[in-house]
Amino acid sequence: MERKIRVIVAKPGLDGHDRGAKVIARALRDAGMEVIYTGLRQTPEQIVQAALQEDADVVALSILSGAHNHLFPRVVELLKEKGAEDILVFGGGVIPEDDIPFLKSKGIAEVFGPGTPTQTTVDFIKTHLKRS
């Protein structure tokens, strides 16, 4: 059997706009990946536990409320604490360009703004997986 890429798609924080997260989830499924959709209002702790228990290769975070600088780095930090640095973390949503260098310095591999084609995300995952 082939090895499947497993992705957690999560919405940290309180905003309920999940159109982007759901479109991405479908696109990843249609690219042959297994997507674990955790839904709205996830704490970084919940997201990290899900990533560990589900043996995820990737954590994809979506946020539109502006709380990204607080919540994204927290997810990476907690993964590190659990010795799971090999899980790829990236984000998307309404995120000002000025914040991206900060987020990248905190271990967010990439930030996808509005209008990013889903294929870009699929390709990014395939080329940036940290685990074989």
């Binding site: 905003d15 709380a67 607080h70």
Partner: peptide
Amino acid sequence: GYDSDHALAAGEVGKV
């Protein structure tokens, strides 16, 4: 319906 001191409010207070 969360006050600003609720755990889930962290990072969200006054944002939108």
